[in-house]
């Protein structure tokens, strides 16, 4: 056994922590090796000196200080008990599988309800006063529409349900223009009629695009075209916006003789 191996085990030999056979081998080496023996003696002296370090007495007032500390803590008794209670409950929840999953589910559900309520506050529900269903009462109306409202706030409303009913109006021509044309066309002649397909743009200007039925008297058509080009029509609208549209105008001249 060499000195290096023995030196590593001197501390354990000193504390009698070596296996008996190994301890004998080490002891035998110490008998024969002066250097290792000296090291062992130094280690032993160190241990004695450590053991003989004076014991530092605790001050007399330590008890008083501890009691003060305890009294101070007891003043916050309720808060501390509550905290300990919650810590104990929480540790039980964390360590019990079923309770842990239930707690997680409740936490997720609470977060969902919170954010849903937040979105609802930012997008409050408006009740349509024109809705006849309102006659039944606002709460009934709300219940009926609640499903749609929830989906809408989650951003899950299907596309077809998001389309609102389109309000539209057709193009119109002022009766005065037609009256003027009627007066200009009132002259002797035979019965006549014509029909035109008109394009009305969003500014209200109209133009004949196609003649569906020609009159016998072409002057009638020319006069009508002249009137139409100077007339200002009300354009068609969809959701409050003017749009291009078409108008079919039919004119019949019936002669009445006294």
């Amino acid at each position: 056994m060499n000195c290096r191996a023995v030196t590593k085990h001197l501390s354990l030999l000193l504390d009698e922590r070596l296996e008996s056979e190994f301890a004998v081998e080490v002891s035998e080496h110490l008998w024969s090796c002066r250097k290792c023996n000296r090291e062992f003696m130094r280690l032993s002296r160190l241990r004695q000196q450590l053991h003989s370090l004076r014991r530092v007495p605790a001050p007399q007032y330590l008890r008083h200080l501890v009691r003060l500390h305890i009294a101070e803590a007891q003043n916050d008794y309720v808060v501390k008990r509550l905290r300990e209670f919650l810590e104990l409950r929480w540790s039980r929840i964390r360590t019990t599988e079923r309770l842990w999953y239930v707690a997680r589910f409740l936490g997720t559900a609470s977060a969902f309800v919170f954010f849903f309520a937040l979105c609802s506050a930012m997008n409050p529900i408006y009740i349509d006063l024109r809705d006849r269903a309102l006659e039944r009462g606002p709460s009934q109306n709300l219940r009926q529409n609640l499903g749609v409202y929830v989906l809408k706030n989650l951003g899950l409303v299907p596309v077809e349900m998001q389309r609102k009913p389109i309000s539209s109006s057709e193009p119109m021509i002022n009766d005065l223009y037609l009256l003027k044309f009627g007066e200009s066309a009132s002259r002797t002649g035979s019965d006549d009629s014509f029909s035109v397909f008109t394009v009305v743009d969003r500014s209200g200007s109209a133009k004949i695009q196609n003649v569906l039925e020609y009159p016998a008297d072409s002057r009638l058509l020319h006069s009508f075209n002249h009137m139409l080009s100077s007339a200002q029509l009300r354009p068609a609208s969809q959701n409050g916006r003017a749009v291009d549209s078409h108008l079919v105008l039919s004119f019949s001249k019936i002669c009445v003789y006294d």
């Binding site: 370090l53 014991r55 530092v56 007495p57 605790a58 001050p59 330590l62 200080l65 501890v66 500390h69 305890i70 803590a73």
Partner: peptide, 26 residues
């Protein structure tokens, strides 16, 4: 006394050992 002595030997200071002893007994 055992606690105080141990704390003193670890920390090397009476006042620190006193503080630690209080915490231990609390």
């Amino acid at each position: 006394s055992m606690v105080f002595h141990l704390a003193f030997r670890i920390l090397g200071d009476r006042e620190e050992a006193l503080d630690v002893s209080q915490e231990v007994f609390f």
